[in-house]
Simulated assay, not measured.
Amino acid sequence: MKYLMLIYGNEEVWGSLPDGDLATLIGEVDAFNQALRASGELVDSQGLETRPRAVRMVDAAPVVTDGPYLEAKEYVGSYFVVDVVSEQRALEIARSHRGCGWARESAAVWRSGR
């Protein structure tokens, strides 16, 4: 089963991290991704480089706004897709991602319809 995991972040928090801490977090995430790649569970993982935009239909016309945001100024900063044997395994992976030191971020998990 494939699951999409969206990683939410806050630009103010990221901008306030000292360079050494940021480098450490990046290294931890790289190791996290490499472990999933080695297990065969990682399908794709990408960071999003530009500010997010949401497109919604309003009266049959597309309206583009900043977002999508959760509370405050959180935004989708990256995503990854895993192909795992169960929802339980997908949730374990999501929990372990937070263990990479991304304590100020959260992950949303969706199961593919296929």
Results as ranks from 00 to 15, higher is better:
32 F>R: 05
13 V>D: 14
86 S>M: 07
62 P>S: 08
85 V>Q: 13
44 D>A: 15
108 A>G: 04
21 D>V: 10
3 Y>V: 10
77 G>M: 15
64 V>A: 04
33 N>E: 09
60 A>K: 08
102 W>T: 07
109 V>W: 06
21 D>T: 11
5 M>H: 13
105 E>M: 13
20 G>L: 03
94 A>I: 00
93 I>A: 06
7 I>E: 13
68 P>H: 09
102 W>F: 12
64 V>S: 02
30 D>T: 04
99 G>F: 11
17 L>W: 14
35 A>D: 08
62 P>D: 02
95 R>Q: 11
27 G>L: 02
68 P>E: 04
9 G>C: 06
4 L>W: 10
40 G>D: 03
48 L>M: 14
69 Y>S: 13
34 Q>G: 11
20 G>Q: 11
26 I>Y: 10
89 R>E: 08
90 A>Y: 07
64 V>R: 03
13 V>K: 12
18 P>H: 02
112 S>M: 09
82 V>Q: 14
101 G>K: 07
63 V>C: 01
107 A>D: 09
52 P>F: 01
1 M>L: 13
47 G>I: 08
109 V>T: 06
70 L>V: 03
83 D>Y: 11
72 A>H: 12
8 Y>C: 03
18 P>V: 14
103 A>Y: 09
39 S>W: 03
48 L>T: 00
22 L>D: 06
57 M>G: 02
92 E>Q: 12
20 G>C: 00
92 E>C: 02
21 D>A: 06
16 S>Q: 14
55 V>T: 15
19 D>H: 08
11 E>F: 05
42 L>H: 14
40 G>S: 03
49 E>H: 13
37 R>S: 14
9 G>E: 14
21 D>C: 01
78 S>Y: 05
52 P>H: 00
102 W>C: 11
52 P>E: 04
15 G>A: 06
38 A>G: 02
13 V>S: 11
46 Q>P: 03
60 A>W: 01
83 D>T: 05
76 V>T: 08
38 A>H: 04
79 Y>F: 15
96 S>V: 01
